[in-house]
C-alpha cells in the first residue's frame, strides 16, 4: 500500500500495462483518476475486488501512463469513463501523439467488404472525374489519391486494343499503350510543375489516369462495333470528355493565364494519341 521507491515503480510499469489491458474488458471497471500525490491507496479499492492483493503495488504506476496505454491498445470502446471522442491527443515522453478512430476497423472485416470499399472509392472518383462538382466536399475526393483506378483503366485499354490488333503485333500494341499511359502522365505532370503549377505529383497521376475512363468506354464500344460511322463519333465524344475532365484539374494549380494553354496542350496530345489508337484499331 505504501508508495514504493521510484526504482521498483519503473520496473513495474510493463506489468501494469498488461494487467490493465485485461481489466479493461471488465465492464464495471473505472480507471483511476489522475492525482498528483500517488493514487496508490484508492485504486486497489475499486479495481481489486475480485483479484489478489498481491497486485496492489503494481497499480502504483503513474496514473496518466496507465490511461494512455489502455487507451491506445484497448479496442472495446464501451469502457465506461473513457472520453468518447474519436480524436485524442496525448503526450507520451514529451512526444505529442494523436490517435484517430477512422470509423472503420479493417483488420477483422471480410475480404469482400474491403474489396467493395475499394471499388466504391474508385467509383466515386470516376463519378467525380466524369461530372466534376466544383464546390463542396466532392472535390476533395481526389485528395486521397490511389493508382488502382488508373492501373485498371490502363490495363483494360491495353488489353482491348491488343485483342483487336493483328496477332503478330498485339504484344507491341499492349506495350505501347501501357508505356504511353504511364510515361505520358508522368511527363504531363512534370510539364505542369515546370510551368510553375503547384501540383501534387501522385494526385495529378491519379487524375490523369481516371480521365482515361471515357476512352476506355470508347474502346469497349469499338471492340464490338466495327462500323466507322459509330466508332468515330463515340471516340470523338470520349476524347472531348477526357480532355475537358483533365483540364478541370488545372484549376487549382495556379498556372498563369498566359501559359495555361501550354499546360493544356500536352494533355490534348496525350488523349489524342489514345483516341487515335482506338480509332484505327
Amino acid at each position: 500500500m505504501a508508495a514504493p521507491n521510484s526504482a521498483t515503480l519503473e520496473s513495474n510499469q510493463f506489468i501494469v500495462a498488461d494487467e490493465e489491458y485485461d481489466e479493461d474488458s471488465i465492464p464495471g471497471y473505472t480507471l483511476p483518476q489522475p492525482s498528483p500525490n500517488g493514487a496508490g491507496p484508492t485504486t486497489p479499492g475499486t479495481a481489486g475486488a475480485g483479484k489478489g492483493k498481491g497486485r496492489a503495488p503494481e497499480q502504483l504506476a503513474p496514473p496518466s501512463n496507465v490511461n494512455e496505454l489502455s487507451g491506445r491498445i484497448g479496442t472495446p470502446s464501451g469502457s465506461g469513463s473513457r472520453s468518447p471522442n474519436t480524436n485524442k491527443s496525448q503526450t507520451i515522453a514529451g512526444v505529442r501523439l494523436e490517435t484517430r478512430y477512422t470509423g472503420v476497423d479493417s483488420l477483422d472485416e471480410p475480404v469482400t467488404t474491403t474489396l467493395a470499399r475499394d471499388l466504391l472509392s474508385i467509383y466515386s472518383k470516376v463519378v467525380q472525374v466524369l461530372w466534376p462538382r466544383r464546390k463542396g466536399q466532392a472535390r476533395e475526393v481526389l485528395r486521397d489519391w490511389d493508382l488502382w483506378g488508373p492501373f485498371i483503366f490502363c490495363l483494360s485499354l491495353a488489353i482491348m486494343l491488343s485483342i483487336n490488333a493483328p496477332p503478330t503485333q498485339s504484344l507491341g500494341v499492349f506495350t505501347g499503350v501501357v508505356v504511353i499511359v504511364s510515361v505520358g502522365s508522368v511527363i504531363i505532370t512534370f510539364n505542369a510543375k515546370l510551368l510553375g503549377g503547384r501540383v501534387s505529383f501522385f494526385q495529378s497521376l491519379c487524375a490523369l489516369g481516371y480521365c482515361i475512363f471515357p476512352l476506355v468506354v470508347a474502346a469497349l464500344v469499338g471492340t464490338f462495333v466495327h462500323i466507322l460511322l459509330v466508332r468515330l463519333p463515340v471516340t470523338l465524344v470520349a476524347l472531348a470528355w477526357s480532355v475537358w475532365a483533365s483540364v478541370n484539374f488545372l484549376d487549382g494549380t495556379h498556372i498563369e493565364t498566359q501559359r495555361i494553354l501550354l499546360a493544356v496542350y500536352p494533355q490534348c496530345l496525350f488523349y489524342f494519341v489514345l483516341a487515335w489508337m482506338i480509332l484505327i484499331q
Binding site: N191, L195, G196, R259
Partner: peptide, 14 residues
C-alpha cells in the same frame, strides 16, 4: 530539383 529547370520553361503561349 524540378525548380532548377523552371527557368527554361518560363515562356508564354505567344
Amino acid at each position: 530539383q524540378v525548380e532548377h529547370y523552371q527557368k527554361w520553361f518560363d515562356v508564354d503561349t505567344n
